[in-house]
Design a protein around this nucleic acid. Structure first.
Length: 330
DNA sequence: AAGACGAAAGTGGTTGA
DNA sequence: TCAACAACTTTCGTCTT
């Protein structure tokens, strides 16, 4: 009885499908007679490929309706839930027991049932964050998310930082160090790995840890996890500082050019990359007549004016930028 | 008055013995 | 482990615009 019903249903669906395609194949544009009909599923429209007339604007999308974020998702045909994410301590694979005091039909629960659900909810929470390590991880990962969003870091950095932190936790590197310093160090490393560097000052300012502490943790991460962190490129900083100072593309381009020359002249090794970027921006802002003061630039780069000065004097000397060029402008 | 400059002293990290 | 060192910071007085 049930089987025959299912079979009949399948047959009806199959026939409809065939009919639909047959219709489409035979369809011709009433305006120009062309047979090249295009279906635009994102708009739900049937359009003539020749003259552009919309033949139908209420098409039913017969494509798959399950959402998938990966090949395996696609195979499972899931219809609910978030994508699996490394930024959640349990990868988002968890169950929440709702707090509504109703059953599936909307009827209020009896007192016994309420008590039972309360107990279940409590145990669910306990098993979800079973160990102190898991609680720490959950706390740290939400902190990574918070700091990264405050610094305007992209998703890729958040995920990299989460992976680094998890590896550090697995290697028991967190023990004896503060969580917030380790979180900051993970973000610092991730940002550098993803080539959107933020300075230690900027990151440690978002936590309760000092720059020193974060730096120490960072070195531990690099050596223990064997991270291959590329040397911070002053050019990455120059672009960001430039836009923060509202400098034109021309000034930034000139600064990058200067950095390139400085690198070739060999005066960049061992120097603070933020200082170099700041000095180049300072020089190019003067040369391009969009001058910013040393203080403004130093503030954005979170270094002192003295460093800006020292760097730009060096640049001036080795790149042969004449003082007379300043005189012309001022 | 604001910005630039430079000297002097102090700090924290790196390196090599 | 420790001293030497380079880079950077802080502070402050002076000069220039």
């Amino acid at each position: 009885m049930v089987w025959s019903g299912v079979c009949m249903m399948a047959q009806v669906l199959e026939e409809n499908k065939v009919d639909r395609f047959a219709d489409e194949a035979l369809l011709k544009c009433p305006e120009c007679g062309s047979a090249s009909i295009i279906t635009d599923m994102s708009r739900g429209e049937l359009i003539c490929g020749n003259c552009g007339v919309v033949l139908d604007d209420h098409l039913i999308d017969s494509g798959p309706e399950w959402r998938s974020f990966s090949f395996t998702d696609d195979q499972k045909r899931n219809r609910t839930g978030l994508p699996v994410s490394v930024t959640l301590h349990d990868k988002g694979l968890t169950t929440h027991i709702n707090n509504t005091q109703q059953d599936a039909f909307g009827k209020p629960l009896s007192v016994q049932q309420k008590n039972r659900m309360q107990r279940l909810r409590r145990w669910q929470l306990r098993t979800r964050l079973r160990t102190s390590a898991e609680r720490n991880l959950a706390y740290a990962l939400s902190d990574i998310e918070r700091i990264s969003s405050q610094l305007g870091l992209p998703k890729s950095v958040v995920e990299t930082a989460a992976i680094i932190y998890k590896q550090a936790a697995a290697k028991k590197l967190i023990r004896g160090r503060s969580i917030s310093a380790m979180v900051a160090a993970s973000i610092y490393a991730a940002a550098r790995l993803r080539r959107v560097p933020r300075s230690l000052e900027e990151i440690s300012a978002m936590t309760r840890s000092s720059r020193k502490e974060v730096g120490r943790c960072y070195r531990v991460l690099v050596s223990e996890l064997k991270l291959k962190v590329p040397v911070a490129d002053p050019a990455d900083y120059a672009v960001r500082f430039g836009s923060e100072l509202h400098l034109s593309g021309q000034v930034i381009r000139k600064a990058l050019d200067m950095l390139h020359k400085a690198k070739r002249a060999g005066i960049t090794t061992g120097k603070d990359p933020t200082g170099l970027a700041a000095a180049c921006l300072y020089l190019s802002s003067i040369l391009e007549n969009e001058k910013r003061t040393q203080r403004e630039i130093a503030q954005v780069a979170s270094i002192t004016e003295v460093t800006v000065r020292n760097r730009y004097k060096e640049l001036q000397q080795s790149l042969g930028i004449e003082i007379s060029m300043f005189d012309n402008i001022e």
